[in-house]
């Protein structure tokens, strides 16, 4: 099982994903320098990612808490998510996200 991480500069990395982990944790564990300042508590908006169009409808929707916290992210788009609020499940194999500038 993998997820694909695109860096803001275009570099792409495929990393091994663990079922049940937050996508933020998977990214961090792979050595990608995502800020994730609050440690996955949905309290800081520094694990902001853009989800590739193909995956938008396959993710559970944002909860209010995540939508509210995204107000503190920069350059928010419709496909913005906090990666600590996406839990990796087998059906997300191949999930592709782009790290936002403010998460690095």
């Amino acid at each position: 099982m993998n997820i694909v991480i695109k860096m803001p500069d275009g570099e792409t990395r495929e990393i091994e994903a663990t079922i049940g982990w937050q996508v933020m944790e998977i990214i961090k564990n792979a050595g990608v320098p995502i800020r994730a300042e609050c440690g996955g508590a949905c309290a800081c908006a520094t694990c902001h990612v853009y989800v590739d169009a193909a995956w938008m409808d396959r993710l559970p929707p944002r909860k209010d808490e995540e939508t509210d916290m995204l107000d503190m992210a920069l350059s928010v788009e419709d496909n913005s998510r906090l990666s600590c609020q996406i839990v990796f499940e087998p059906e997300l194999d191949g999930l592709t996200v782009t790290l936002a500038e403010d998460s690095l």
Partner: peptide, 8 residues
């Protein structure tokens, strides 16, 4: 100016 009509 805010990106949505909802506030935290």
């Amino acid at each position: 100016v805010h990106h949505r009509d909802g506030f935290r």
